[in-house]
Amino acid sequence: MTSTVQLEIPASGAYLAVVRAAATGLAAQLQFTYEEIDDLRIAVDEACTQLLARRGSATTLNVAYHLNDAELRVDVSIEAPDRGDPLARDTFAWQILSAMTDEVREQAEAGRLGLSFRKAGGRG
């Protein structure tokens, strides 16, 4: 069974602490280890920062946390008409996201830019 928690925050770096805190709390419930939580926080920060850096006139950032067994999937997206690919794969940001998570994907559809990543916990 998947549970979903959604957050909508102003498109501003000042609110990233809220996104991090929510991720931390949810991961703890999924029995993530301390290090896994730290990795998750880094990934959340990186994904949000990258999208905010491309925010243009967008005013909100949406974050959805999907909890499934011992796995957390985080979808971060922002309104972005005509903005193409969110993130090239040969960037440091992409490298960070890949190293911190089990899978990362970019999504550019329906006027939104998104990054989505999965991370399983409880593996030490």
Partner: peptide, 23 residues
């Protein structure tokens, strides 16, 4: 690496407190 629950038990803290510390 320990989980939050494990840290809480060992430190005699609530999980909430451990999370606060992590933050």
């Amino acid at each position: 690496s320990p989980t939050i629950a494990e840290i809480a038990t060992k430190a005699h803290l609530t999980e909430e407190e451990v999370l606060e510390g992590l933050d």
